[in-house]
């Protein structure tokens, strides 16, 4: 229950206020966590060519709530939390590495 409360709080933290100073963005911590996990995980594995174990540690960020799924066959990494946030990055080619979608 405490974990759920934390996640809801983090999700709500992303309400943007474009007139605030400094500007705030419509990101929740959870969205940033999954974006970081997917992009950095994909690049670690398919651009730097490091092991899955290394890459799981490489992408760890606070809050450490992103669950990573490495799809080696399709060169794709998905990061998700158990509430709604999900991000996917996939390897494009040898010049452009991974792109976050």
């Amino acid at each position: 229950m405490k974990r759920l409360l934390l996640l809801v709080t983090l999700a709500l933290a992303g309400c943007a206020d474009p007139d605030a100073h400094p500007r705030t963005f419509a990101n929740s911590d959870l969205q940033l966590a999954v974006g970081n996990g997917a992009r950095m995980g994909c690049s670690c594995m398919f651009v730097m060519n490091m092991s899955e174990g290394y890459c799981r540690e490489w992408v760890k960020a606070s809050p450490d709530v992103a669950k990573l799924t490495f799809d080696v066959a399709n060169k794709r990494v998905e990061a998700s939390t158990f509430v709604s946030w999900t991000a996917t990055a996939h390897f494009v080619d040898e010049k452009h590495g991974c792109v976050l979608r």
Binding site: A13, P22, R23, F25, N27, L32, N36, R39, S62, L100
Partner: peptide, 26 residues
Amino acid sequence: LDWVEDYENGNYQTSSVLSMLFGVGS
């Protein structure tokens, strides 16, 4: 530009760079 260059130890909601790399700006 009123850019905020905060990383993992800064404020996630006001960080221009985190938003660009991993969030709504990506």
